[in-house]
Computed example of a mutant assay.
Amino acid sequence: MSSGGRSPATTSAYTELLARLTAGMFKPGSRLPGERALAESLGVSRATLRIGLNRLAEEDWLVPSSKRGWYVRANVVGEPPNTLQSFTEMALERGMTPRSHVLEKTLRPITFDEAKSLQTAPDAQAVELVRVRYLDDVPICYDRTVLVLARARGIDTADMEDRSSTSS
C-alpha cells in the first residue's frame, strides 16, 4: 500500500478518472459507463474502481445513484487539455459568470524562496493577493497569487475584485 492506505492501482484509477472528467470525456450530468466496462478500460478490478469512484464522490466530482450507476456532478468545471487560460477566460468560454472576493491584498517584500522561484532580486517588492473565486456564485477555489510589483506595474492599486491577475 502507498501512503494514505491507497494502492498504486487505486491511485492510478482515481488519477485516470479525474483526468477524463477534467478533459470533458464525461459530460456534466451524464452517467458513467457501467462499472464492469469502466474497470476493464482502466485495467483494474471493480473493487479497485469503486475505491476511486468513491474518492471522486467525496470530492464532489461524481454522484452515486443506487442501482443506477455513477453520474458526473452537473457543475464540474475543468480546463481543456493543453490550454492555458485565465480563470475569467475559462468561465466566459463556458457561459459562466466569474466573480472574485478579495480577502487580502498586501504589498510586501518578496521572500527568498519566492525570489528564487520568480527569478527576481531578493529585495524586490511583491503584491500578495488572496481571494475566493466563484463561478455562477458557487465558490470554486481559494486563490493566493504573488506578483513581482516591477513586472505588474499598477497591480498594487488595481481593483482585483472581479478581474484576473493576468488580465488587464
Rank of each mutant, 00 (worst) to 15 (best):
A126S: 12
V148W: 02
F87W: 02
A39P: 00
P122F: 04
Q85W: 01
P8R: 14
E89V: 07
R133L: 14
R94Q: 13
T83C: 12
F87P: 00
M96C: 07
R46N: 11
K67Y: 12
T166I: 13
S168M: 06
Q85V: 04
E40T: 15
R73E: 08
T48N: 03
F112H: 12
E59L: 15
V127H: 05
L92W: 10
L32C: 10
P33K: 12
P33M: 09
N75T: 08
A19V: 00
R36G: 10
T15H: 11
A126L: 06
L49D: 00
D156K: 07
E161S: 13
V72Q: 00
R153E: 13
E40H: 11
A124P: 01
S167T: 13
R131F: 08
V127R: 10
G29M: 05
N75Q: 12
E93T: 11
E114W: 03
S41D: 13
T120M: 02
E40C: 07
E79D: 00
G4C: 07
P139L: 07
A47I: 05
R163T: 13
T97R: 15
A91D: 03
R153S: 12
E40K: 15
R151I: 00
R55F: 01
D136R: 03
S164E: 04
D162H: 15
R153T: 09
E89M: 08
G34A: 13
H101N: 10
G52I: 02
G154Q: 05
K116S: 08
D159H: 05
T157N: 04
T48Y: 03
A152K: 11
F112P: 00
E93R: 14
V72A: 06
A158T: 07
L38V: 08
V127F: 06
E104H: 08
L53G: 01
P28M: 07
R55Q: 12
P81K: 12
R131P: 02
I155R: 05
D143T: 04
N82C: 02
E58V: 05
I51T: 14
T88W: 13
P28H: 05
P33S: 14
G29P: 02
A37S: 15
